[in-house]
């Protein structure tokens, strides 16, 4: 914005636009553009969010680590482990997400899907970003340095191959999802589940 044009080069914007279009499309088809799906996860009534996130991590992780090993990509994009900031920020984020009922990406997608309450939600996010910027000097001095370990992964921290974690997640996920699906199809537990919850894969 200052010392550069406002817009990135068109080719970069087009790439982002295509990815965003697909990402938003998938989130709507998954039902996570709805408050009741997100809050239903936190209320442990509807496990759609967990199923989507964990499957994305397993599939994504297998591909990204395979590409890294084969030299198809050169580097990862790991964010710094600043343990107090990651943990405290995660707690604050969770409280905000339970109140809003969307996360940043799914809120924008939710607007497209007709969830009007996501509009003040996104405005609140921009406001929250400004508040964080104002508080940044203090946070940088007192929060960010605590437990700063740099850009480490579970693999580099433990010295184990990343495949232990990717395969471990896949095995745990598969077993967990198998039991969850059995439990969900058996129970449906007396209508405590919000409308539109659960897995609808028929048509």
């Amino acid at each position: 914005m200052f010392d550069t044009p406002f817009f990135a080069p068109t080719s970069i914007l087009l790439q982002g636009a295509v990815v965003g279009l697909i990402f938003g499309f998938l989130l709507q088809k998954g039902g996570v553009t709805r408050f009741n799906t997100i809050v239903g996860q936190f209320l442990l009534r509807d496990h759609t969010v967990l199923k989507i996130m964990l499957t994305a991590m397993i599939v994504g992780g297998a591909g990204v680590y395979a590409m890294l090993q084969l030299g198809a990509i050169e580097a990862l994009h790991v964010k710094s482990a600043q343990l107090l900031a990651n943990g405290l920020g995660g707690l604050i984020f969770g409280v905000g997400m339970a109140t809003l009922g969307y996360c940043p990406g799914s809120a924008v997608a939710a607007i497209g899907d007709g969830s009007r309450d996501a509009i003040p939600g996104v405005l609140g996010m921009v406001f929250g970003a400004g508040v964080y910027a104002a508080a940044f000097p203090w946070i940088k001095a007192h929060i960010l340095p605590v437990g700063d370990m740099g850009k480490v992964t579970l693999s580099t921290t433990t010295g184990l191959s990343p495949w232990w974690f990717v395969i471990g997640l896949a095995v745990l996920g598969a077993a967990g999802f198998y039991m969850l699906e059995r439990w969900e199809s058996r129970g449906a537990s007396g209508g405590s589940r919000p409308a539109g919850g659960g897995v609808a894969r028929t048509a």
């Binding site: 990651n86 996360c103 929250g128």
Partner: peptide, 22 residues
């Protein structure tokens, strides 16, 4: 929703990412 959005993004920036990035 506005308050939730503000709180959520404050937390995301402290942590360095959100449900997508992290």
């Amino acid at each position: 929703a506005f308050i939730g959005g503000a709180v959520l993004l404050f937390g995301a920036r402290m942590a360095g990412g959100c449900t997508s990035g992290h």
